[in-house]
Write a protein that binds this DNA or RNA. Structure first.
Lengths: 169, 169
DNA sequence: AATATATGTCATGATTGCTGACATATATTC
DNA sequence: GAATATATGTCAGCAATCATGACATATATT
């Protein structure tokens, strides 16, 4: 390989020469996968984004609606732990979803300080509508995949997560 | 399955009853995969975020540094097409990266209106430093996976993308 | 010479994250 | 019962990153 950044002898060089060789995959670094994750996630969230824009909601609302529908009765603390955002960040979107009738709060039956979160029928409809194009996309991506590959993809995605997302976090 | 939202007869009900049944996977909707994608992407970008925070850069800088290192000589238009953002959004981060000496611009040799983008040595170092923890995470997620599964994951991620990211977009 | 293209820039606004501070209601502990 | 801890809400302000629209400049193309 030719050297790229040797300064030209005797000439004043205000900046070093830039690199022209592409960064390629190596033994240890798989740039292809890194890019695939970027592109696939970008497109994966684009469908819901388009739907949400009509209601004046954003991606943050999507996450809240999704998890409350998946875990009705979860508390605000549970939600903060799942989303890993601050309560002030959550407060804005949660308030909008409650005011718009997508989510309801109920005081916890044992611990009345808690606010348990439940979807309304409208909230459930929205969660399903948002999941629908994402599911179609996933099904398309799995087209023709063996059961082993499908399980392998799930294992891969699980393995990408930080360890121990347990309560004791 | 029990009905959940039948109004109680004869009593004034200011709000319909919220739903308490979790939204589960169905034939057509795989909520598990939807969540796995959310969690895995969130954690996938967390490592670079931590590194970038030290330099005062953000996720947007990461993307620019990554793609310019992968495709030295790409034009501003190429980059806009890849990132799918507006030139005004790109302008800020690109300017910062140029001013800080991570990226250089050169007028196109044939078309002098173009600004071809190249990484500096510093820019390449940054790209590699950012890719390193992501690669370790990917390797960990692939631990023990067969060649078929590895190929299957790549195919899955490719299939998740919108069709034809070609020039004719 | 007129028009199109690639890029840069200015102004402005929305969303979504953050921090710090403080308030309220309820549980727990001394 | 008083003190303290916890779950939640809220106010004020800051920052990053996306967006839109309008306009400027240099260079290509017709």
């Amino acid at each position: 390989m030719a050297r790229q950044s040797s300064p030209k002898a005797g000439r004043r060089e205000p900046r070093p020469e830039p690199l022209t060789k592409p960064l390629e995959n190596t033994e240890t670094i798989d740039f292809d996968i890194i890019e695939l994750l970027f592109f696939s996630y970008r497109d994966f969230v684009s469908d819901p984004d388009a739907i949400l824009a009509k209601s004046g909601f954003g991606r943050a609302h999507h996450r809240v609606v999704h998890f409350v529908n998946r875990n009705p009765g979860m508390t605000v603390a549970d939600l903060l732990d799942t989303l890993k955002i601050t309560k002030q960040s959550l407060a804005r979107v949660l308030k909008q979803l409650i005011d718009s009738g997508y989510i309801q709060q109920k005081a916890g039956p044992e611990d009345r300080r808690q606010r348990k979160l439940y979807p309304t029928a409208t909230g459930r409809d929205l969660a399903l509508a948002l999941a629908e194009p994402q599911s179609r996309r996933i099904e398309r991506a799995f087209d023709g995949a063996s059961a082993e590959v499908r399980a392998g993809v799930k294992a891969f995605l699980s393995g990408m997560q930080n360890r121990q997302n347990s309560k004791a976090d």
